[in-house]
Design a protein around this nucleic acid. Structure first.
Length: 720
DNA sequence: TACTATTTAATTTTT
DNA sequence: TTAAATAGTA
């Protein structure tokens, strides 16, 4: 029982939280103040010092990554595995409960989880079925409505239309959607939480059982909890389970997703005697960065209030660069990155942040031309790829014939001559007889369809039945292999022309090996395949599972939360972009944008560049823009303007040799930035040019071959 | 059914 | 601008 190991590295506030007696605790943890460390050490303290059994601990996070990190760090601190400790995401834990108690939860034993993409498809199909004009009823809005209700813990029966026909229709959609899910045995993300909450609420013995089992509850990112998550936590806590919540109201940036910072106040009301600890010492950033961040966030009204400080150095001022336009901005950033890399720093230690994904394009072009490797965060994850979802849909249908979502997805994929007509008649039958498409298919094939269509449908039904029989004795990866081969999906994608088809085939093969290495943890609760499918929905996998190459990191401010970098660029700092136009009018929206800005600034360890463009091409039109109001909220003493605005107009192109080459450019009939093709080196972009006539040379950055100087008269470049 | 033209809209995202 | 969704054509 080595207490010093757990406590020695903690400051006073952290120690106070970690060693607190069994009472409700609320830890307000500023950016970079050791939030995860406190959670990890608290768990270790409870287990190692207080003698709490690991299985009496429940730790909840928002992301799988955070859950994995917490488990890893607890185990390494304790020096032993903690198998019976429940650590997971809200959704993961809810899923676990529902698998274990599917009967009480009113679910079929083999229910499956649908992701937002599946959900949207379901809604679109629902609209078609109801023959509703989907220009008036936007599927995305319906999806948003349904999820928002579920996030609040509301079922259709709880909702009142208040005489508003619009709302009445929405409620009707919600109800119809629920019926579809119910019949197909499908559960969406919000439904997991809602059901898990109802499970406890309506089963006193079950709740009592878990309340006896758990003595302590650890909650990460508490400011991000939505109503149903909070209700679930509070229900479990009851009067006996001790909650320990960690969060930062200043970093609440997900209100639009249902998160409610107010829970931080509610917590103190619901758990009288809550002790609040503030972690304000920051171990990440320079004093300058922190003072700037503090000054910015002080403009928000609804705050608990705290002041980050550090005993470290002041550091460099924040550098603000006013770019002429977005390309100049990108050039500037690329230039600073070049310097950074040339000084021997890691590319991966630098991040370029922006408000919205579309802004990455110009930056990417700049980095590409400069030959600097980069990685863009976000985008499609492995299990979200179309080909992967197709393959999984076969497995799902094999596991559950009533899964209409999967049925629709693969009925004609690969194409097997079952067109929209045929599917429509199945839908009609299913609607009329209130049955699944699977049953409709065999009924329709037997009497409504012409021979040709009937044949195609029957052979599809046989294919699935045969797959089910053949799969019975196979292990998981063999079943996946069977699914992609027997369905002929793999050949379907192989025929796809170009690299796209290739990657798709690779992904499918990757899926087979994912099946090989999959280790189940709920084996008692469900079949291996079903667990794999749930896993795929719940953990959509890495964006790019590329090998660890040293890359500059590009991401939105949102996805930067929780990360830190020695060098940070906040780009596109213009009113309308950031704060975003859509949030600008609403005071609470503006405050959330400001918190986002605060998150961005506090990612920085040493050097922060803030850039904006005076003119930006947006939606194909050049617009003049103004620097973000947030820049003005940073006190001047922490800021250094990189370039006096007087020079701005001169900087149409980057300085140096390029400027001198303007004349040459015109004479040779090429221009910088021009895309070209070379027989041997492939596609590239002209970076520079010099000389005249037969001696004229151009510098070209090729996508694959790198940067080369070529003599124009020999190179035989095709302009593109 | 696949390819092409036209229209439309344009934050943030984890589960 | 451009990406995605829809409508129209071969």
């Amino acid at each position: 029982m080595d207490v010093t190991l757990i406590l020695e590295s903690l400051n006073d506030a952290q120690r106070k939280a970690v060693t607190a007696p069994a009472q409700p605790m609320l830890v307000i943890a500023g950016a970079g103040s050791g939030k995860t460390r406190v959670l990890v050490h608290r768990a270790a303290w409870l287990i190692d010092v207080e003698g709490v059994s690991p299985q009496s601990l429940l730790a909840v996070t928002f992301t799988n990554k955070a859950a994995a990190e917490m488990r890893g760090r607890i185990e390494s601190l304790l020096g032993m595995p903690v198998n019976h400790l429940w650590i997971g995401t809200f959704h993961g834990l809810a899923h676990r409960l529902l698998r274990r108690h599917w009967r009480e939860a009113g679910l079929p034993p083999n229910f499956q989880i649908i992701d937002s993409d599946d959900q949207l498809r379901l809604i679109k199909r629902l609209l078609k079925n109801l023959e509703i004009d989907d220009s008036r009823w936007v599927p995305r809005e319906i999806q948003y409505f349904i999820n928002a209700q579920k996030d609040e813990g509301l079922r259709p029966k709880h909702l009142d239309d208040d005489g508003d026909p619009n709302r009445r229709q929405m409620i009707a959609f919600y109800k119809a959607y629920e019926e579809i899910c119910e019949r197909a045995g499908l559960v969406d993300f919000a439904e997991l939480l809602l059901r898990a909450h109802e499970l406890w609420r309506d089963n006193a013995e079950l709740l009592a059982h878990y309340q006896r089992r758990f003595s302590h509850l650890l909650i990460d990112e508490f400011q991000d909890t939505n109503a149903i998550q909070y209700a679930w936590l509070r229900l479990l806590a009851g009067k006996t389970v001790v909650p320990f919540a960690v969060g930062d109201d200043d970093q609440s940036i997900y209100r639009w997703r249902g998160a409610r910072v107010e829970h931080i106040h509610q917590f103190q009301k619901d758990f009288p005697g809550t002790v609040v600890v503030k972690l304000e010492q920051n171990y990440r950033s320079t004093a300058t960065i922190l003072k700037a961040a503090n000054a910015l966030i002080a403009n928000n009204n609804a705050r608990i209030g705290k002041n980050l400080w550090t005993d470290g150095v002041d550091g460099e001022p924040i550098k603000v660069y006013a770019a002429y336009n977005e390309r100049d901005e990108a050039d500037f950033i690329v230039g600073r990155l070049r310097d950074w890399i040339d000084q021997g720093n890691l590319r991966a230690d630098a991040a370029v942040l922006y408000r919205s994904n579309a802004q990455s394009r110009v930056l990417e072009e700049g980095l590409m031309n400069a030959g600097i490797p980069y990685r863009v965060y976000g985008g499609l994850r492995f299990f979200e790829r179309a080909e992967i979802k197709d393959a999984l849909a076969y497995l799902r249908l094999v596991s559950n014939r009533d899964d209409d979502a999967s049925f629709e997805r693969i009925i004609n994929r690969p194409t097997r001559g079952i067109g929209a007509r045929t599917v429509e008649s199945m839908r009609a039958y299913a609607r009329a007889n209130n049955c699944s498409l699977w049953r409709a298919a065999s009924a329709v094939a037997n009497d409504e369809l012409n021979a040709r269509a009937a044949n195609a449908v029957l052979s599809f039904l046989n294919l699935i039945e045969k797959m089910a029989r053949d799969a019975a004795d196979l292990d998981l990866s063999q079943q996946i292999d069977l699914a992609i081969h027997a369905s002929d999906l793999i050949n379907f994608f192989r025929k796809d022309k170009g690299e796209k088809g290739e990657t798709r085939v690779e992904n499918l093969l990757e899926l087979v090996s994912a099946g090989k290495s999959f280790k189940p943890s709920l084996a008692d609760e469900m079949s291996l395949v079903d667990e794999f499918l749930s896993h795929a929905a719940l953990e959509s996998g890495e964006g790019q599972a590329d090998a660890w190459e040293d890359c500059v990191q590009l991401m939105t401010m949102h996805s930067a939360k929780g990360l830190e970098f020695p060098l940070v660029f906040m780009s596109g700092m213009e009113d309308g972009l950031f704060p975003h136009q859509r949030s600008i009018a609403d005071p609470s929206g503006l405050e959330e944008e400001r918190r986002l800005c605060y998150v961005g600034i506090t990612r920085t360890m040493q050097t922060l560049y803030v850039t904006y463009a005076e003119q930006r091409r947006l939606h194909g039109m050049d617009k003049l823009s103004h620097p973000s109001r947030f820049i003005a909220e940073i006190p001047g003493e922490f800021v250094e303007e990189i370039r006096p605005r007087v020079q701005v107009s001169r900087r149409l192109f980057s300085p140096g040799p390029r400027a001198a080459s303007k004349a040459t450019e015109a004479e040779l009939g090429i221009r910088l930035g021009q895309r070209v093709r070379h027989d041997k080196f492939g596609n590239g972009v002209i970076l520079n040019c010099e000389g005249q006539g037969a001696h004229a040379r151009v510098e070209v950055n090729f996508e694959t071959a790198g940067t080369k100087w070529l003599v124009l008269s020999y190179a035989n470049l095709d302009l593109m």
